[in-house]
Design a protein around this nucleic acid. Structure first.
Lengths: 310, 310
DNA sequence: GTGCAACGTTTGTCTAGGACAAATACCATG
DNA sequence: CATGGTATTTGTCCTAGACAAACGTTGCAC
């Protein structure tokens, strides 16, 4: 009778879990059938009642999947092991954001203090310069925010608030650079099934100080539209961004198709976490494994490019 | 054999329709069972294949539902009738955005030209002033964008682009006003099941020029958190925003609960399209049926309010 | 070793109809 | 006119089976 209730006695229905974890109802039911986790209790009406403990483990799994691991390999592991794996991944990366900055940002997000966050971001940007700001502060901060969400330290809409404020800050900084007409014109976008658009803005922030003229189409542009836009803008480079979990085959097929559709003189770049999983060599496609490489790739392009006769 | 293929021969699976219309897969299947619409063809594997014509009608139905109509009443009507109803609604409203502004904004969205849109919005705002900008330009523009989406003139992510740019413009304008310490403190948010947050920003834009000190929690704040935040910020007014389709009973119950939890000295406002559907009188709750009323409500509050002894 | 095709395995999404509760509309009563 | 009860509408959840896309691995050719 007085068995210890789940911490705080909170139960969530399957919709709430879908919202909290980003895993579809179908997937949640399927995992229960196949792997036996999560195995929620049922209410009087036979409907699933998930616990906050379930949410924690599901989030950890989701986060590891987002960096390429497969659910079957990790779903049986205890939460502690999952956290160990996630920690190992973050420890692997040399770039860590200053602890006090991370702490401040999390506090502002939890109190929904958008103006303060905006002020902090602007301040850091002015101090570091746009490129270092993106590389040294934003990239690791993104990971820190993701980890905080996994631990349940942030609500999903608090993560959205972060993304939104970051976009405001980056856009303002990018717009502050004057457009140089003679510079290489770069078309930025993602394939239709790619959700994450923040990477585009970060790439743009890396390139604009180098004197590139960026045209961002936003995320999710159909291949045919990419082709048309590249012609319309007379782009020299078409750059696509892929998040870590993007289906490899779909990316390779899409890139090959796009490569065939683009004029040979147009350079095609593929960047983002996904590109580290690529083993094949793809003729006519330049892989950009991390943000810092963007600058080298641009300089390399400049040294090889021969102005085309109109 | 050579029967006319659907216009452009495009077919969409149920996931694509969910994404394009915002109607869940369950709802799409249920409507097919109950009302016989939409009745998609099937591919070799028995999976539903919707046509672009289906999408058009589904969007029209969704849009009319979002203003309070029920699906059973309208799902049998031909598309022309649905459009007539939608047009009648827009014609009813006296506020229409200037046709050339609407045209320009749609063009910029279709070409994904965020900087141009930003420039246009900033320009209009400077010319009209913040309050008139919100009332005369943004409110009708929002409806125009929604209608364009219904007609299929805009992709879903182009609508998102609009929302995003609008937020940038409004936030910048709001931040430009100095914070007056002695003014009434207004806490702005929505209930957890309410998705639409842009209304909050518009309310804030209406109030800040009146000298109010607004604290926006963003959308989806649990009732208990609203209570705590109102105490923490010593709010004089707590203002909630509800979109047109918000479940009436849930709003009334939630408002009654919140009213009981808040100190009697704190004024409780309920605004947004939904409030026009309210018939009951709710003691201790002020209904704000439209944006323009915000200013009157604020002046009324000022004239009635007696400073509380600390 | 490197590149590539063919295979088995893993994984997500789709299908069907049944059931029920939340939300609403309608109607009667104070 | 306001409140409360009843009928109807409507969305979400349930089970369990099926299949294709994505993945990793193996074997073969260079």
């Amino acid at each position: 009778m007085n068995m210890s209730a789940e911490s705080q006695g909170l139960v969530l229905n399957i919709s709430a879990v879908e919202r909290e974890t980003g895993l579809s109802k179908d997937v949640l039911r399927m995992w229960e059938r196949r792997y036996g986790f999560p195995k929620p209790g049922r209410d009087g009406n036979g409907e699933r009642q998930y616990t906050t403990t379930d949410i924690g483990k599901l989030r950890a799994i989701k986060r590891l999947m987002d960096v390429g691991l497969r659910p079957g390999k990790i779903i049986g592991l205890p939460l502690a092991d999952l956290n160990t794996m996630a920690d190992a991944r973050t420890a692997m990366r040399p770039d860590r954001v200053a602890p006090d900055v991370e702490h401040d940002v999390l506090r502002m997000l939890r109190t929904h203090d958008a103006p303060a966050l905006q002020h902090l971001l602007a301040n850091l940007m002015m101090r570091q310069g746009l490129q270092r700001f993106v590389l040294d502060t934003i990239a690791p901060l993104n990971r820190a925010i993701g980890d905080a969400w996994m631990r349940g330290d942030l609500q999903i809409f608090e993560e959205h608030l972060y993304t939104e404020q970051l976009q405001v800050a980056l856009r303002a900084a990018i717009n502050a650079f004057p457009r140089q007409p003679g510079a290489p014109r770069v078309l930025l976008t993602t394939f239709p099934s790619e959700q994450h658009g923040i990477g585009l803005l970060m790439v743009e922030a890396m390139m604009v100080p180098e004197g590139a003229h960026c045209v961002s189409l936003g995320p999710q542009t159909p291949i045919e539209d990419i082709r048309r836009a590249s012609l319309a803008h007379k782009a020299h480079i078409v750059a696509l961004s892929f998040s870590a979990a993007f289906p490899l085959r779909q990316a390779i097929d899409g890139l090959a198709t796009l490569r065939r559709q683009l004029p040979p003189g147009v350079t095609l770049w593929a960047g983002g976490e996904m590109t580290r999983r690529v083993r094949k060599t793809m003729p006519g496609i330049v892989l950009i494994p991390d943000l810092a490489s963007t600058i080298n790739a641009l300089r390399s392009w400049r040294s090889h490019w021969v102005p085309q006769p109109a």
